[in-house]
Design a binder for these strands. Structure first.
Lengths: 351, 351
DNA sequence: TTGTATGCGTTATCAC
DNA sequence: GTGATAACGCATACAA
């Protein structure tokens, strides 16, 4: 019933060598006679030996040190993500991993690079950052990796960098999904979609818009997109103007943030409202969904992102091979499948 | 840079007691003077001590033994789930957990109970089963729990049992979600929805149907449901007949299995096809989505289910407190957001 | 009530 | 090339 798993001592005995020699083989330290290597390998196979990672880490006194760097500011989505990281940090202490969550000025690649350089001196095992499109960031990542520090990008990738993995959704796919749902909601009827983005220069927003374009066909068309700079006041003004100017608009797809403004416009609209699809489940989008002001929220599931980042960094630190990086499939929320509202005991915020 | 985390020895020294006394306090073994308890507690707080689980498990030579019992048969969904469990079993060996995946005759509570009883004698730490509505199963679960064996139900719950957790989707919510998406696709137009279930006596199917009913309102109505016994031939015949008999039907919601039959009917349909929403991403539903024969697949993400089951069982075995059991939020797939088709190297099947 | 000693399976350091 | 052996932090049997 309680048969013990074979240990390296068992292997050594079976192979007729000392423990140390067996260890040299499994850890590829070299300096072992070919003959011994073969005998140890055979013993490992016969016994079905698997290395006990817990014991290994214990003997090394291994302590993982990871850092996550998020943009500062009041953005609801990153607020949620920060809370998730901080929660993870607490529970990870039990497992000997120390996760520090830092914030850095948003949209400021230079600041990010400075922070990365400081962390590099800090004897850290792995770092997660929210990518941006700057070459200097790509270079900094290269430098970190050169020092053996694992780097994963989160939410937004850093093109041209050799980060270990990107953890996030495929934004083109997300845009196409939005387009498909909007098309479905038109049921073959004609319509015109108003796209709202933060900025076309933002890679993720541009990709989502491109995805939307991929799907729009037939008697659906696209209105000129609004650049709302992710600010709710600008979004509000822009959307209000566009809807007034073009009564043919039957749907709005917001690929960026600042959706509180969009929601206000919809709320104030007389008559039937357009189909509305937007991104990220945060307090105001949740309320709008519950109130029937919008139809769909595409959420990139920061919980899963955070979990994958931590798993990935640990895997890298253990040199257990490269990270498998399937994109995260975002969740599609309608009014009916919202997760139970969880009141975060830390921040008091409703998620 | 590499400051060591405090150990229980540090705590003991700081508290001015022996290691064993400190241990008695942290593990609540009793038989310690109140004064010592307080001093140890204070030292723990001051030092920020956290128990090293890896070391603890090592010293105990702990080896988790879990079992998962799935229904047999050729059902595509459970085939996928079995593959996932088997893959997990392989990679878990590294972490000292042994997971055996067994199958038992489907729809046969007695067979399940017999299997459970056998496992109980087998010195196992935790079991995952696909629930069914039978009292005998609930009793068997109670017996297992009484022996300190963790039990989680998967995909389908066992009502009235005191299992440690149910890991799966909320089927009422799933039905409501389907209803909402169908309503969205009607865009205010009138329509009639044809529900297809395996059997109304199946709890999960009934719940999904109830969820659908919750949402249907206004100028949408429900056709009488078809019971397809989860068999594609029966589903095919039933749906074909219903569609022929009632040309007013504008949508089909299939809450159960046997959808290959539904897909065949849709494929053969002249003119515009109804909106089709069904459950579980398996090879045939994936192909139908890609071919534009159906609109939405609601997938309960067996990957996440499996991961949660294992985490949960381990947590129980460690007595780290009860499982937190938020329902799994199913993924909604349209044609555009399908995950990359992965060819399972084990089975050769395309997922 | 309290304290000491041993072993868990690995890594790493030393001596042969 | 090879072989002993001391940590690592914890649980536990045993001694006081």
């Amino acid at each position: 019933m309680d048969r013990r798993l074979p240990t390296l001592s068992d292997v050594a005995r079976r192979a007729g060598v000392s423990y140390a020699t067996a260890d040299r083989v499994v850890n590829a330290r070299g300096g072992v006679a070919e003959k011994s290597v073969l005998r140890v390998r055979a013993a490992i196979r016969d016994l079905g030996y698997v290395r006990n990672v817990a014991a290994a880490n214990l003997s090394q006194g291994r302590l993982y040190r990871f850092a996550a760097i998020l943009p500062n500011g009041t953005n609801a989505f990153f607020g949620r993500m920060r809370a998730l990281f901080e929660g993870a940090a607490r529970s990870l202490l039990t497992e000997r991993v120390e996760l520090t969550v830092e914030t850095v000025e948003a949209f400021d690649p230079a600041a990010l690079v400075r922070r990365l350089e400081k962390l590099a001196e800090d004897c850290i095992d792995g770092i997660a950052i929210v990518g941006s499109d700057a070459d200097e960031v790509a270079e900094a990542i290269g430098a970190l990796r050169g020092q053996g520090i694992g780097v994963v990008t989160l939410v937004s990738d850093v093109p041209g960098s050799d980060r270990d993995a990107y953890v996030g959704i495929d934004n083109v796919v997300a845009g196409r999904t939005a387009g498909r749902l909007i098309a479905l909601a038109h049921g073959g009827q004609a319509g015109r979609i108003l796209p709202v983005v933060g900025a076309l220069s933002a890679r993720d927003h541009a990709e989502r818009l491109a995805g939307l374009r991929d799907v729009v066909a037939g008697n659906l068309s696209l209105a000129p997109e609004i650049e709302g700079r992710d600010r709710h006041d600008i979004v509000e003004a822009g959307v209000a103007r566009a809807l007034k100017a073009d009564p043919e608009i039957t749907a709005v797809y917001s690929a960026g943030a600042g959706n509180a403004g969009l929601i206000r416009v919809v709320e104030a609209l007389p008559g039937t409202r357009p189909v509305v699809v937007l991104h990220e489940l945060v307090p105001h989008s949740r309320r709008a969904l519950e109130a029937g002001l919008i139809d769909i929220v595409i959420d990139q599931r920061p919980e899963e992102g955070v979990a994958r980042v931590i798993d990935g960094l640990r895997q890298l630190a253990d040199r257990r091979g490269p990270i498998i990086a399937e994109p995260i499939v975002p969740t599609i929320y309608v009014r009916e499948n919202l997760p139970p509202a969880s009141n975060d005991p830390e921040t008091g915020k409703t998620t």
